[in-house]
Design a binder for these strands. Structure first.
Lengths: 151, 151
DNA sequence: CCTGAAAGTGCGTAGAT
DNA sequence: ATCTACGCACTTTCAGG
């Protein structure tokens, strides 16, 4: 699954504005509208593009408090166990297993500090969780990226 | 900047698939197509919706290596200084100032370990950076969210 | 290139303040 | 009485074949 320069430029254009017309993107990268469409279709079929979504201001949706939680797990906890456990929290927007002392790094959005604390306590109370360590986001500096699947 | 239930449902529908037609969304939430469009326009004008973007599989774009870098800054470094400095790296996809020992937490995507190491060294060499501490992502468990502005 | 569908716009109306 | 949001009808633009 390789992407050439043209594909990258198309993806880049869509990343900035997924509502731009194929013709518009085509005029930028030097292709006709149908040519762009065919490439986008191919990228979707290959899984390089997994969907289209909206960029949202968390505060406008009432998610005023953001933080990262490191999770230290008990022995014999599989990544799948962690994923299943965390997926039940709508406040968890991303999670990955990581190198280093902690087992997983989890990004959490909450409506306020009280809400964040409650989520943190719930996560810390999960059977597979030994302990947690968290930092709060003071101010977001950059957000550029969107990846993965909904759910 | 208030969002009612209807707005939330529209945003949720767009978050799952930003390419759905207004008529389609309208039939789900009980509005006509123009009514949905006007709400989306209003949400964009208010800044609740900051744009439309594409969901991408990092690996398909050649970003096989992901990591989080904690940055410890020299005194008298403003968040804006950090933002400006980091925005020059295409590999940096998100960055926030945080509580705790570190000053900022930065998410980095690189093509491979060599690339990641090079970026890490470059960031560590920035004048405002005292030292860094990084963890590598082993496997992504969840990705749900998209926010913020292109940059 | 051609057709159908969707976006976008003007207007009249109804309900809320 | 005014403001806001709706639906309908219409034109323009785009998607998809």
């Amino acid at each position: 699954m390789r992407l050439n320069k043209l594909d990258e430029r198309i993806v880049h254009a869509l990343a900035e504005d997924a509502r731009r017309s194929f013709a518009d993107i085509g005029s930028e990268v030097g292709l006709s509208a149908p040519a762009v469409k065919r490439r986008v279709d191919r990228l979707r079929a290959e899984g390089a593009i997994t969907g289209f979504t909206v960029r949202v201001d968390p505060a406008a949706l009432g998610w005023e408090t953001e933080g990262f939680v490191e999770i230290y797990c008990r022995h014999k906890t599989s990544p799948e166990d962690i994923r299943r456990g965390l997926s039940r929290y709508p406040e968890v927007v991303s999670a990955s297993t990581v190198t280093g002392d902690a087992d997983a790094l989890v990004q959490v959005f909450a409506s306020d500090m009280r809400h964040f604390e409650r989520v943190l306590e719930q996560i810390a109370g999960e059977p597979y969780v030994e302990r947690t360590k968290s930092v709060l986001v003071l101010s977001p500096l950059l957000r550029r990226f969107s990846s993965g699947a909904p759910g």
